[in-house]
Design a protein around this nucleic acid. Structure first.
Length: 659
RNA sequence: GCGCCCGUAGCUCAGCUGGAUAGAGCGGCAGCCUCCGGAGCUGUAGGUCGGGAGUUCGAAUCUCUCCGGGCGCGCCA
């Protein structure tokens, strides 16, 4: 609603500037006045035009206010200060539309969106860093769907890499396990936890004797080759760990549609198809001398073109400086990780000319089917890939590799695809030195002064996702037990889980992506202040009002309410602010999508909850003697409750019936 | 050395398409249950927006520079 009105305002202003001054501004800045009583929108445009028109800002503001005429939905335009134009909406109209849940239509861009997230190496348990990735990705998916987009969710599985090889080495060389024994272990609950420790041990073992690295090389080679005992054991392990990851993420209501695996990228020869096109387009060049002799290389993303055909008149050949080269194909003919990623992304955009085989892999309790790549798949399967836009939720450390992939698409002549390629970059989750020490990590004096300590899977050092959720659930459970002893065991367990997940998801979303999260149990376990449970509790309070008053919150009718009167004056301002904030949801969602930043949604949820709590405290609704006033207050609670539930749902947070 | 990110209250972070008095949570201090009210509410203290220069009517926000911290830069993935 808010977004809809803003757009209309923008158009009106633009149209007026065109008509009055023959000006066409690229962007018209619209902000919100510092106080609600000044209006809903503020235009600082007169300041911007002052120079251009050689007039005083206030004079321009006067001209705009006098000339813009009436705009539907808006009450009036006022001049404030040195030249601001404050704009007031028709509160009653907006409130009535909001109460009736009228959703203005908005145009949805065509085409499917592909969001890739999680992409955890299937060799050990998921940790808090993976949680941030998955929660960001899943929330972004929900945001896109909220905005009406069709979305495919993919989780890339590197099942043939060194990390899997390391665990295979652990089982075969350190534990001397047979395949049958590993099968038994893999079927046990939380097999991924046992891999977590084994991976750390294997990593340690390599450092004890360089000879041990030979085992890794042999194992990795066998895995890539396929069709042998080692490869089968690797597949057994990685598949079992993958299932565990899906279970872990399902605890958070995070699901996937398709799991493309590196083994199929290899065995279905995606690279060969990509290589041919890359050579043909001249994206890759062969180095016949120097450091990278015998390799196929491409320009490293972000390096400047020192010599281009344009600069030199179109005749001279590009020559890449060695430090600007990124090796894609090694001199032994094998392709590196970036090369495989290029092929995979060509497939995503439907530019490769090859497809995966597909088979069903995992059925969620709600019936949703998750597919996996396969060399020989099932006949009937959904269509994946060939999408209009992609978002890759990958941490900031891989920015350069991501840019290289995008640049390769550009080099292939698919600039449009490259433009619709978004590296959804976020910073890592580390531990506060205090937290690291509590986990048994020995801190050096230097460590103690650091803002954070990085987790290390290789050292087995970090906080596992399932462990964190267990701690959160039991902590929430303690609270629920003491507050609601009358509820059944099952009910209390469900509520505790909802609160725990709400707290976790909110915690991971409240930080903006470029901020490193220095994790500490104290912060993550907080259920007070700016947290998920705070927002959940606001909804529960609203629900309580309706329950105890004998009304149905979902079907509460606002007909007959005199919004104009109730929203007028000083007391009207305070409640109007709540309505206005509730009206902003779709506006915030579109901001989140445009900036690829879900944190704004978390802020919005908190702000709405906070305003509601203040309202709740100030207005004893059920005790209100004036029936019309009471109905208005109830309508306020109903609208805020509805919007808050929606916002939380977009963050993957559900609300318990009681708290 | 090159590239990217960060530096805002005691702590953790918002605010950055330039705009009206720089905000929130936590922590501190002082208060609030006539109940739809305590996973809550109110008040209060707390800031050279890392330093400097520039652009501008106007800079936390843009540019440059310096300082401090982090992360990348491999024929690893």
């Amino acid at each position: 609603m808010y977004r809809h009105l803003e757009r209309r305002l923008t158009e009106s202003v633009r149209e007026f500037l065109q008509r009055a001054y023959s000006l066409d501004l690229a962007t018209i800045v619209i902000e919100q006045p510092p106080k609600i009583e000044f209006g809903e929108y503020a235009l600082p445009i007169a300041f911007e035009l002052a120079r251009k028109l050689r007039k005083a800002p206030r004079k321009i503001a006067e001209e705009i206010v006098a000339g813009i005429g009436s705009v539907p939905g808006f009450e009036r335009f006022e001049i404030a200060g040195a030249g601001y134009i404050n704009v007031r909406v028709h509160r009653a109209e907006v409130a009535a539309a909001l109460a009736a849940d009228q959703i203005p239509s908005s145009d949805v861009p065509p085409g499917k969106v592909l969001v890739e997230h999680s992409s955890i190496n299937p060799n050990k348990a998921a940790h808090i860093g993976h949680l941030r990735n998955a929660i960001l990705g899943d929330t972004f998916v929900r945001l896109l769907r909220f905005a009406g987009r069709e979305v495919d969710i993919q989780n890339y599985i590197d099942n043939t890499g060194v990390q899997v090889a390391d665990v295979v080495v652990g089982f075969l060389h350190l534990e001397n396990k047979s395949r049958a024994q590993i099968e038994v272990l893999a079927a046990a609950p939380r097999f991924d936890f046992c891999c977590w420790d084994l991976y750390a041990r294997a990593s340690q073992w390599y450092t004890e004797d360089k000879q041990n690295l030979q085992a890794r090389a042999t194992t990795l080679h066998a895995i890539e080759e396929g069709n042998n005992e080692t490869a089968q054991i690797a597949d057994l392990i990685s598949t079992a760990v993958l299932r565990r990851h899906l279970e872990t993420m399902d605890r958070l209501d995070i699901e996937y549609d398709f799991l493309p695996r590196e083994s199929e990228i290899l065995h279905l020869h995606f690279w060969d198809a990509a290589f041919a096109k890359l050579k043909e387009a001249g994206v890759l060049t062969y180095e016949s001398e120097g450091k990278n002799k015998g390799c196929w290389v491409m320009r490293r993303a972000g390096t400047s073109k020192t010599l281009t055909t344009e600069d030199t008149g179109g005749t001279e050949e590009d020559k890449l400086a060695e430090e600007d080269q990124k090796v894609i194909v090694r001199s032994n003919g094998t392709v590196g990780y970036v090369g495989k990623d290029i092929a995979y992304h060509m497939w995503k955009f439907g530019l490769l000319g090859r497809d995966f085989g597909y088979r069903k892999f995992y059925r969620y309790p709600n019936g949703h089917e998750c597919w996996i790549s396969s060399t020989n798949g099932e006949k009937d399967h959904p269509h994946f890939g060939d999408v209009a836009e992609i978002y890759n939720v990958i941490d900031a450390r891989q920015a350069e590799a991501q840019n290289t992939v995008a640049e390769s698409l550009r080099g292939l002549g698919h600039g449009e695809a490259a433009d619709r390629y978004t590296h959804f970059s976020y910073e890592m989750v580390a531990l506060t030195p205090r937290c690291a020490a509590d986990l048994g990590y020995e801190l050096t004096e230097e460590d103690k002064t650091r803002p954070w300590i990085e987790v290390s899977g290789r050292k087995g050092f970090g906080v596992k996702a399932d462990d964190l959720m267990d701690v959160l659930v039991s902590s929430a459970r303690k609270e629920v037990d003491s507050r609601h002893p009358e509820l059944s065991e099952t009910e209390r367990a469900t509520i505790a889980t909802q609160i725990a997940i709400g707290a976790l998801r909110y915690f991971m979303l409240k930080y903006t992506k470029p901020s490193v999260i220095a994790f500490d149990f104290k912060d993550a376990l907080s259920f007070e202040g700016e947290t998920g449970p705070y927002a959940q509790y606001a909804v529960v309070r609203a629900t309580n009002i309706f329950r105890k008053g004998g009304f149905d919150a979902d079907t509460f009718s606002a007909s007959g309410i005199d919004f104009a009167q109730n929203l007028a004056g000083e007391s009207g301002n305070e409640i109007w602010e709540l309505w206005l904030t509730a009206a902003k949801t779709s506006y915030v969602v579109s901001q989140c999508i445009a900036t690829a930043e879900p944190a704004y949604l978390a802020k919005h949820a908190f702000q709405l909850a906070q305003l509601f709590n203040t309202f709740y405290h100030r207005h004893p609704i059920l005790a209100e003697a004036d029936e019309d006033r009471k109905k208005f207050l109830l309508a306020t609670a109903a609208v805020v409750r509805r919007e808050l539930i929606r916002v939380l749902a977009a963050m993957g947070i559900t609300v318990p019936p009681v708290m």
